[in-house]
Design a protein around this nucleic acid. Structure first.
Lengths: 301, 301
DNA sequence: TAATCACGATCCGATTTTCTGATATCGCGC
DNA sequence: GCGCGATATCAGAAAATCGGATCGTGATTA
């Protein structure tokens, strides 16, 4: 089995088509067909069900996909580190992160990055999404991670992952005793939320409206730490993405309950100027961030 | 970069020689030379220092080695699972484990194995090493994991890993307040140890003798659970391998202190009849065990 | 000091694998 | 029944891999 087999299979799997997969990896459709068939023949399994409209994975195919991406991830990481150690990756990158990232993801990421890429200097700016996209447009940042994307042709956006939002209460609050928070069925909440300039806020407002959630009092607070502190020691509640709740999951100061019926989610996007490609150093740092984000998701389950 | 590059590099690295590495992977010396050189050229790094007596890795080479084995491990695991899912791996295997393994490693291992290899039935027998090697010789076990190896031509042994031994005391004992236990400098200990038939015991006796450790009273107990219970609620102490201490590291009932000055270690070996090759199912189960052992080592640090 | 030995680097021809582009085939909707 | 969009198949070209022979180089030995 070669890496090529895995790479091609993953491309077909993700695109749902041999032809589309071939485009993505700059190869021919027949090449991919052969490779996947070789895998199936060698191991005597069916990975994909072919039809004239494309392909759908079998159960075995889905499981193998997970293993395949793990292998590919490890391989590209090994390559990246080697390139870094050769001193080829160097420079100074400046990235912007939404406050969510700076609590649970940034810490481990910078530690690993500093060790693996000794020749790269990193500067991190923290701000909300509007300000971040402005800075990216102004060329002040190599890239930024933002929760939502106000489409702009001058920006290129790539999806990084999807997180769930959680209801956060003080540890001794009696407002909710279930392990899923159905907001529309709860007593009117006193909510602390970020201001309307915040991209997440807009999505939350929409959710509250469409799901007929009753709100008691509303406080606007654009400081993450103050919000967390306030929630811990009062009956005020707030709504936060999963990755920022991680440190609270174990502790007792705050209770963290997934929002259900229906779920409320946040998408994390990377945005960068569409005119200039991301530097090697920037890509490397993004890789590490993404990796840590994935690790955080795994902890959330 | 291809898997072949990694496989060849790892072979050369571990054997410390191109020629020896070539033998191991059934290839020619020139082939390995080319592959490693390609890696070095492509990434502009020096991985190995060549001399006429063999090769020694550079710092970069050592780091890359770690990444390389991670990739290869992931790849072989993916292959194994695929083979398993095809239903090709089937049968009934019987393995023998020393009691150490049944506490921290066996649990996770059987859960994973049952999920990944639905067509294989596993039976586990628990016994001390002498009894286990007898059963392997009698053909009653596919393989066994034992702490030491009384060389016997009818058995093939492969090293699985090396673990440290720890001194285990009750949680409120005052016998040792350091985070390393230097036995020769401590007050005479009351020790609970397995009987002399146990292979670990022989190594412990040797250690106590050569390091002039003073022993107070000695109790022989061949039951792991009774030993743990006794230690928790009395001033008796015992000596146990790291992986069996894992569940105690967090708790307060027992204190677990690494033995130092010098270290005391255990080697885990897999033994099987040298006349018959290990079945695919047996190899698969061993892989999972090894993987969990490695995970346990990682937790020990 | 010279012969020997063990090892890695390099070269070249034979072989095998891999990739492509064209063509055949299939299933579905119209 | 026909055309569209999809995959499978095939044969030739290109590329890589492999293996044996040869050369250079240190360390060791007589």
């Amino acid at each position: 089995m070669k890496l090529q087999h895995l790479k091609f299979f993953v491309a077909v799997f993700e695109e749902g088509s041999f032809s589309a997969g071939a485009q993505r990896v700059n190869a021919t459709q027949s090449g991919l067909s052969m490779h996947v068939r070789q895998l199936e023949d060698r191991f005597q399994v069916q990975l994909l069900n072919r039809s004239s409209t494309g392909v759908t994975p079998t159960e075995v195919g889905k499981q193998f996909y997970r293993d395949a991406v793990r292998v590919l991830r490890a391989a590209t990481e090994a390559e990246a580190k080697l390139r870094a150690l050769s001193g080829a990756i160097t420079g100074h990158i400046t990235v912007g992160l939404m406050p969510t990232f700076t609590r649970a993801v940034l810490g481990p990421a910078v530690i690993r990055f500093a060790a693996d890429y000794p020749n790269v200097k990193v500067s991190v700016r923290e701000a909300y999404s509007g300000e971040l996209s402005r800075q990216v447009l102004a060329g002040e940042l190599d890239f930024a991670i933002v929760p939502a994307f106000d489409s702009d042709v001058r920006l290129r956006a790539t999806q990084m992952g999807t997180d769930r939002e959680f209801l956060v209460l003080s540890g001794d609050s009696s407002l909710c005793d279930s392990d899923r928070a159905v907001l529309s069925e709860m007593a009117p909440l006193n909510l602390v939320l970020p201001s309307r300039e915040n991209a997440r806020r807009r999505k939350i407002d929409e959710y509250l409206a469409t799901n007929a959630v009753e709100i008691g009092r509303l406080m606007e607070l654009d400081s993450m730490f103050t919000t967390l502190d306030l929630v811990a020691r009062s009956e005020w509640a707030t709504i936060l993405p999963g990755i920022i709740c991680l440190p609270d999951l174990a502790g007792a100061r705050r209770r963290v309950i997934p929002i259900a019926g229906p779920e409320l989610t946040v998408d994390y996007l990377r945005i960068e100027p569409s005119s200039v490609p991301l530097s090697d150093a920037g890509q490397a740092f993004y890789q590490v961030l993404e990796d840590e984000l994935r690790a955080a998701f795994d902890q959330l389950g």
